[in-house]
Design a protein around this nucleic acid. Structure first.
Lengths: 348, 348
DNA sequence: ATCACTACTGTGAACGTGCACAGTCCAGCA
DNA sequence: TGCTGGACTGTGCACGTTCACAGTAGTGAT
């Protein structure tokens, strides 16, 4: 999106769709009145309103968004900006769930969602002018890693945005919506301990992501509350991918063979952990209990199905959209933390 | 998207971005010359071109897409229209792979991708005016089921579109891009037979999808070519979901306990089949060989990893975009069939 | 009767761009 | 010298909408 590139040649102007002027003529009123009806019908007589609506129906009139944008200085659309390496996004069912939620939430406000990926620095440079030029009214930003340059860019472009998950390393106020990672982790570890497990390990997420930090914190907190000393041999750090979950589990089994439970910071990694445990000839949950995080489709597909922490994706996407619209309407940034829920299945 | 709904209130007009007029003034030329440079620079002196480019860089000028759309009668964007039940889409990694490919392919042409879901009849009615009004220049249509009303609607709206996979039950010419399902199925069944398997079953896709039909045809063909009579007890029909794969496999094991191989029409179903086989106390591939289809991320994550048929998603998305752009430029519909590839892993 | 106020309606002026057209300049040629 | 054609440039108009403003009619209070 260099945004100085030319557009393809104009399409021939055959059978043009009806304009607001056609509607006005049909309804026997003026442009202005039709426009007012379109805006909600304030200060328009019921008779005129009905006439306009009838004309709209009869002609199949649809407002021209380009013309409207031109005068309102609004794009009338919102970007879903994915500032993560693409592979990770498209492998992770959480993201697609989020994308789905945002699409439907925006649809209710008649706002098209523009999907933009910017995993690499080159891509970010490419889309920068697109965003600066306000070709969208706001951005739903998915980017969990610390210090994403996109945030500065958006702020500088004065473009409203809402992050999914708390952005790390930001000094100024930033709007974000997140699940309560720490509380979720605490709930899972509490459950494992109260099920009688003694040596509870964890596979954490990357240290530069909020999920990686907060879920690990929750794990440590709950151990402490149960009077258990923290043992760093029981901690492995993955990158949320299935492969890393498998590698971490293998590592844990080597360093701490007596482990009898593991809290994994994502379902995808937990599924990988299951594979490692199986290969080691151990059984789940008999020998080792496995607790995941997310309650993504992976959790139900895993064998055995994963006991996990549900992230309320529907509400997350809903709130992200709501916050974004509020910001577009001039409100300041806000923070929303949503509760999680323990889902018990067979793995723990 | 009723598309008669009002837009939110206009944003205050502070600090307006530079227009083509500002660029012209800075470069010491007229609007027209700047416009010509933007369109490729034909009939513009090198000196003027350089001056314009310098002004653009200096001012950070970005073309106003709304204004351009208004005059060119072009939206400057393309829709990715998902006319499937949403759950299926977002569970199936194939679709997300396709979405990713289309996003990047379109990005190279500076075309934003607008994601639209229309799984239900109500949603279809909602987006119809949006499409009829040409708020996008074309549509990448994902809809495998027979007789999708969206196709008629798009044709009637005179909106270019390209389907992913051959749309069934269409009498007139429709642009589509698909992998060679039949050939892929043949390759897999040939591989199974040549590996020494004698009783090769299949789990097919729904009969109202091209993949369901053609892959089953390929299966039958290859059996015939090997002088094996078709046995309907060896055929089960699923719906591409993991759960249905599991159920179908269970059913096959009951009806034909001597089965020693199964060709499954999707990786997701194959993963389900693995679960059923495991529960039956059988081993893969020792007792039963399992062949999948797609080579989606599921294939490598499965235990054991799936031998499967790779669909060339990158090329599919690339060709879909290319065909769509060609149609937008006035060319007629075209059909592209791409070859598949056998990927041997551990399940067969 | 006059005034003020409200409810409603029409009109002109943008918004920023691309395109068609007209115009200028200069080189090449008869 | 005058003519022709090509290269380059500037200008008016149109695209379809919203917004601010002005204007009209009707109502109730004085």
């Amino acid at each position: 999106m260099t945004d100085t590139a030319p557009q393809r040649r104009a399409r021939p102007r055959t059978k043009r769709p009806p304009t607001i002027l056609d509607v006005a003529a049909h309804a026997g009123v003026s442009r202005g009145t039709v426009s007012r009806v379109l805006q909600g019908g304030h200060n328009v007589s019921p008779a005129s309103q009905e006439a306009v609506h009838a004309a709209i129906r009869k002609l199949g009139y649809v407002v021209n968004r380009a013309a409207r944008s031109l005068v309102t200085q609004r794009a009338g659309s919102v970007a879903f900006l994915l500032s993560e390496p693409q592979e990770r996004f498209f492998e992770d069912p959480n993201f697609t769930t989020l994308l789905r939620g945002c699409t439907t939430a925006l649809a209710e406000h008649d706002l098209p969602l523009i999907l933009i990926t910017a995993g690499t620095e080159a891509e970010r440079r490419r889309i920068a002018p697109f965003l600066s030029a306000h070709h969208v009214d706001g951005v739903l930003l998915v980017s969990s890693h610390r210090g994403n340059p996109m945030i500065d860019h958006l702020r500088q472009a004065n473009l409203p945005f809402v992050c999914c998950g708390k952005p790390l390393g930001e000094r100024d106020a930033v709007s974000y919506v997140a699940a309560n990672d720490r509380e979720g982790a605490r709930a899972m570890v509490r459950y494992l301990l109260e099920s009688g497990r003694k040596r509870v390990a964890t596979i954490a997420g990357p240290r530069d992501t909020p999920g990686g930090l907060e879920r690990l914190d929750g794990y440590r907190e709950m151990l402490t509350e149960h009077g258990i000393a923290f043992d760093k041999r029981l901690v492995a750090v993955g990158d949320y991918s299935r492969a890393s979950g498998e590698a971490c589990m293998q590592q844990l089994l080597t360093k701490a063979p007596d482990v009898d439970a593991v809290f994994v910071a994502s379902d995808l990694m937990a599924d990988g952990a299951l594979a490692a445990i199986e290969r080691a000839g151990l059984r789940v949950p008999d020998d080792i209990a496995v607790g995941g995080f997310d309650d993504s489709p992976v959790a139900t597909a895993a064998r055995p199905p994963l006991t996990t922490i549900r992230q309320p994706w529907n509400r997350i996407s809903e709130m992200m959209v709501r916050q974004l619209l509020a910001q577009i309407d001039g409100e300041g940034p806000a923070t929303v933390i949503l509760p999680t829920e323990l889902v018990v299945r067979e793995s723990a």
